[in-house]
């Protein structure tokens, strides 16, 4: 019984990743607490959370790099502890830090990783073609001399060269410019159509909507797992964006008001969450005028994933 699904229902085959109550401690720090989730085949699953939430630890457990203290994790039907060799043959992994050989050229890196996975560039060229043509003009340049976006594309090519069944991308867009980030997500969408399951982590909440399903993680705990749309529509309170000429004082005053349940700074506006239906924008405006605010602007807005994250992480 090497494969988990043999003694479980065939339904398990549908899951590219299955995690049951996985926990991990670093000395006294609880890095992961009772993580439980499934990733369907061919899905883009996002792990969304701030730095230090435990994203990388989770990725390393799933890619068989470290051992969990407790719990079971299966990748492509194989156990991460006992069958790690099988997993290593069939997954692609792109660590958060640029982890290619800086003193080798683009082509040498790609060739090296192709042979490491017992394949050739030609064999799976179709899969990486769209990405590789963009870096091909620089194929004789050393990887260390590439720009951030180029490095990312090369790393993705190297992780894809053996046509993995599951692709692990740990913060692939951190430190990459907005244009390259957008391009990168475009590439992930295409890969999804070639049947590759993608587990991707990111600290950028705006990227959450590009995933099929997301898990919000904080302090080693999953706050919620759902589609980005469901997470947003499940937001129960009213949400107002508030602006005035004195933003720091505004935040203080909004938080001091007992009727505004939550208030967070979001770029140039403050988002206020209201769970009291009697509370109107006029009441808030009067309250702020009393406190000496000028140029007050209040508008009702649709919640974003980030609003949901803030809401969930505080409760």
């Amino acid at each position: 019984m090497s494969r988990y699904q043999m003694d479980n229902e065939n339904i398990k085959l549908d899951f590219a990743i299955k995690c049951e109550s996985v926990s991990k401690n670093y000395k006294k720090n609880e890095a992961l607490k009772d993580i439980k989730f499934d990733v369907n085949r061919g899905e883009i699953f996002g792990i969304i959370g701030p730095d230090g939430a435990g994203k990388t630890t989770l990725f390393r457990i799933l890619t068989t790099l470290i051992l969990a203290d407790s719990g079971i994790a299966l990748v492509d039907g194989f156990d991460v502890v006992n069958e790690y060799k099988e997993i290593r043959k069939r997954v692609g992994y792109m660590p958060g830090r640029f982890s290619l050989y800086q003193d080798l050229t683009v082509e040498e890196n790609l060739n090296f990783f192709a042979t490491v996975f017992n394949t050739t560039i030609e064999e799976n060229y179709e899969l990486i073609k769209d990405i590789y043509v963009q870096i091909e003009p620089f194929k004789n340049r050393r990887a260390g001399k590439l720009s951030g976006g180029m490095k990312q594309k090369l790393a993705l090519c190297c992780a894809l060269i053996h046509k993995p069944s599951v692709l692990f991308l740990d913060e692939p867009t951190t430190g990459v410019d907005p244009v390259s980030r957008k391009e990168f997500w475009g590439m992930l969408k295409k890969l999804k159509f070639s049947g590759i399951t993608i587990l991707v982590s990111t600290p950028y909440m705006d990227e959450a909507s590009l995933c099929d399903r997301i898990a919000l993680i904080q302090n080693g705990k999953f706050l919620k797992i759902d589609t980005p749309q469901n997470i947003v529509t499940q937001y129960e309170n009213k949400l107002w964006a508030v602006q005035s000429s004195n933003m720091p004082k505004l935040l203080k005053d909004l938080r001091a008001n007992y009727l505004t349940e939550k208030c967070f700074a979001f770029g140039d506006k403050h988002h206020v969450s209201i769970d009291n239906l009697q509370f109107t924008q006029e009441i808030l405006r009067d309250y702020l005028l009393e406190n000496g605010h000028t140029n007050i602007e209040i508008s009702e807005i649709k919640p974003s994933v980030e609003d949901c994250f803030m809401q969930l992480s505080q409760s």
């Binding site: 790099l65 060799k85 290593r88 997954v91 992994y93 660590p95 982890s99 490491v116 996975f117």
Partner: peptide, 13 residues
């Protein structure tokens, strides 16, 4: 140190 060991470990090497 360069992190390449991570990638090498997650391979059939």
């Amino acid at each position: 140190e360069m992190g390449t060991m991570e990638v090498l470990l997650v391979s059939p090497m």
